[in-house]
Design a protein around this nucleic acid. Structure first.
Lengths: 347, 347
DNA sequence: CTGTTAGCGCCTTCAG
DNA sequence: CTGAAGGCGCTAACAG
C-alpha cells in the first residue's frame, strides 16, 4: 500500500510552490512559469507517478468530467452508442457513467437529475427516450440547465437537442442502390407490431418509399405484415407474397427481421436469394449477418456515430462552446452495408 | 438556474447544526439524534431537494462509489455483464464507469490504474482479460491494493479473484438433458479458430464430454471443425458429417455457431431438426435465436449473473467485508434454455 | 445528545 | 514570477 501522492509532494520534490504545480498541470493562462521550473515539475510528476485527485479538483471546479449514458441495457444497439460516446469522451477527457433506464424505483428518471445535482455528472446522453409524458421532466432539465442530448428521440422538439438518422435519405439511398444494381421496381415490406402503429421513423421510411417510386414513375407496392406471427404462419404468408410479386423481384424491408423472413421463405421455395430475389433491409443486421446465408444487404443505423456525435455535442454544451439555447437537431446519414442478398453490378 | 443547496441550508431550515445533518444522512453509528430533529432534517432535505455533493463527500471519505467496468465494447456479451454489474451496484449505491479495452494510447490498461489513483473509481470488474503478459500489471494492482475482480478470466490464479462459469458442469447438464430427452448417444462438435488451439473453457468442455461418455459406457464421437471455412465448404463438411453419424442422432456443439451450421446443413438435406436430428449448443445463442428456425436449445453462459456476482464481490472488498487476501474463484452454473432444436419428453 | 472545529486536496486570488 | 491564504462542501473527532 503506497501512500497517496499529493501536489504538495510534487512541489517539494520540484522545489516550487503548489500553485506552480497547479499552473503547470492546468496550463493556466496568464500565469508564466519559467521553462526550467516547468520541466522540474513535470519530472517530479513522472517520478512520483502523481495523479490529480479527481474529487478534489471536481469540488473546486464544479465539474466531474463524467457524463451519463441513459439507456436500455438489454438493447444490443445501446452498446454501439456507448462505444461511440466512449470514443468522443475519451478525446475530451471525459468519462462515461452508465445509467440504465428501468422501472426499478431506485433507477427512475429522476435519479438522473439527482446525479447532476450531486455533481456526479456534467450532462446526459440519452438513447431511450423517456416517455411521452415526460414534458414535466424536460422542464426540470431546462430549469436546472442540465446539458442533455438525445439519440434517436424527439425530432423537432423545441427543448431537446437530438441526434438522429435521416430515415428518408436512408430509404432513398437504399432504393437507388437496389435500382442501380438489379433494375427492378422494389416492393416495400413494412413490418410492425400488433395494432398497426408505426413509429416516426417507419412513417418517414414509408413516405420516402412512396415518393421515390412516384419520382421514378413506378407503382408503389407495399406489403405490411405483423412481426408477431408464428413461424409457420409467417412462412405461409411470405411464400404467398413472393408468388404474388412474381420473379425476379427486388424487396426492401423496413426491419431486418422482415428481410430474414422473406429470404427464408424464398429458400424454402427453392428461389435463389441474391439472384432471382433480391432482398435488402433498411435497418441493422450487423449483429446477426454472420449467422445468415445469404447475409443481408442493408442500410445500417449509424449508432456508433450517433453516440459519438451526441457526446461531442454534449461536451460543447458543458464547456460553454455551444449556447445552451441551441436545441437544433442533427441528422446523420445511414451506412450502406453491401452483402450477399442483392446481386451487384461490378462497375 | 437554481443555486446549489448545501447541507448548511438544510441545517438552517431544520434548526440544527451541520453535523447533525451529516449524521442523519449517513446514519452514523454511535451518534444519537433525537427523533424530532431527525424528522426536521428529513423534511428540510425534502423541501429543498437537497442532494449531497458527491465530490465533496468523496474527497472526505476517499471513496468515489464508482467502479470501473473494463471490457470490449464491441462484444455484445459485455452488455449483459454490464447489466448484471449495474443491478448489483445500484443495490449498494455504486455507479458503473465504462472503461473500454482498446489499443488506443489514451485507453491503455494503465489508464485504469490511474483512474484509481485519481480516486475516480474504487475498484474494477474486468471482462476482458488483459494479456497474458500482464503479470507485471497484476503486481501493480496488488501493490496498490486495488480491488479487482475478473469475469471469465484467470481460473486458479493466485492473485486475481475471478467469477467463472462451471464449464464442466455445463456440459454434464447439457448431456444429461439430451440423453434424458432423446436417449441417443450425443456426438460432440468442437469448433475452433485457425490453428487448433482451444481455450481453457473449451478444453474443460471436451474433457467433461469424454468423461461423461465414459461414465455412461458410450463411445465418444468428436467432430472438430474450423470456424473459418467458407459457407460452401462448411455446408459440404456438415452434410458429410451428418451422413456419417447416421440418423436419428443427437449433437452437442461447443459454440452456438456450430449448432447453427449443423442445423442448416440438416435442413438442406431435408432432415427435420428437432425430430431426426437433435442439436444443442453449449454456448449462448440468446441474441440470435429469434432469427433462427428451429431455435437452438443451449446452455447459456450466465453473463448477467457473472457481472452481478463480480460487482457484489468487488463491493465486499471495497467496504472491507471481505479481506483483500481472499482471491478465491467463484463458479456459477450455466443456464439451460430449452428451445426447438431438441425434442423434449413432456414429463 | 449537540455544537464547534479541523482538515480532505485542489485551485485561485492576492500580496510580495 | 513566486509564496501565502482562503475556501469549495462535507465528515469525523472532540469538546461542551
Amino acid at each position: 500500500m503506497t501512500k497517496r501522492v499529493t501536489s504538495f509532494d510534487v512541489a517539494k520534490l520540484a522545489g516550487v510552490s503548489r500553485s506552480v504545480v497547479s499552473a503547470v498541470l492546468n496550463g493556466t493562462p496568464g500565469i508564466g512559469v519559467s521553462e526550467e521550473k516547468r520541466e522540474a515539475v513535470l519530472k517530479a510528476i513522472q517520478e512520483l507517478n502523481y495523479q490529480v485527485d479527481a474529487q478534489a479538483r471536481g469540488m473546486k471546479t464544479g465539474r466531474s468530467h463524467c457524463i451519463a449514458a441513459y439507456g436500455n441495457v438489454s438493447n444490443p444497439m445501446f452498446l454501439q452508442v456507448l462505444e461511440g460516446m466512449q470514443g468522443a469522451c475519451a478525446a475530451h477527457g471525459y468519462h462515461v457513467l452508465l445509467y440504465p433506464s428501468s422501472k426499478e424505483p431506485q433507477h427512475t428518471i429522476d435519479g438522473l437529475l439527482d446525479l447532476y445535482l450531486q455533481r456526479r455528472i456534467d450532462g446526459i446522453v440519452a438513447l431511450d427516450r423517456p416517455h411521452q409524458a415526460n414534458e414535466a421532466w424536460i422542464r426540470q432539465l431546462v430549469k436546472h440547465r442540465l446539458p442533455y442530448v438525445s439519440v434517436e428521440g424527439y425530432p423537432h422538439h423545441e427543448e431537446v437537442p437530438s441526434v438522429l438518422m435521416d430515415y428518408q435519405e436512408s430509404i432513398r439511398r437504399a432504393l437507388d442502390f437496389l435500382w442501380g444494381n438489379v433494375g427492378l421496381p422494389p416492393v416495400y415490406v413494412e413490418m410492425h407490431h400488433g395494432a398497426h402503429t408505426l413509429g416516426w421513423g417507419d412513417q418517414q421510411r414509408r413516405e420516402a418509399y412512396e415518393l421515390w417510386m412516384k419520382e421514378h414513375g413506378l407503382q408503389p407496392r407495399i406489403a405490411a405484415a405483423s412481426a408477431d406471427l408464428s413461424w409457420e404462419e409467417g412462412a405461409e404468408h411470405w411464400k404467398r407474397c413472393i408468388q404474388e410479386w412474381g420473379l425476379p423481384t427486388a424487396v426492401l424491408t423496413n426491419w431486418s427481421r422482415g428481410a430474414v423472413y422473406v429470404s427464408r421463405a424464398a429458400q424454402m421455395m427453392g428461389v435463389p436469394v441474391g439472384e432471382q430475389l433480391h432482398v435488402m433491409a433498411a435497418d441493422n443486421t450487423k449483429r446477426i449477418h454472420e449467422y445468415l446465408y445469404p447475409s443481408i444487404t442493408s442500410m445500417e443505423v449509424p449508432y456508433r456515430e450517433m453516440g459519438s456525435a451526441a457526446a461531442e455535442r454534449l461536451v460543447e454544451y458543458i464547456e460553454g462552446r455551444r449556447p445552451y439555447e441551441d436545441k437544433s437537431t442533427q441528422w446523420l446519414p445511414a451506412i450502406l452495408a453491401v452483402r450477399q442478398s442483392v446481386a451487384t453490378v461490378s462497375s
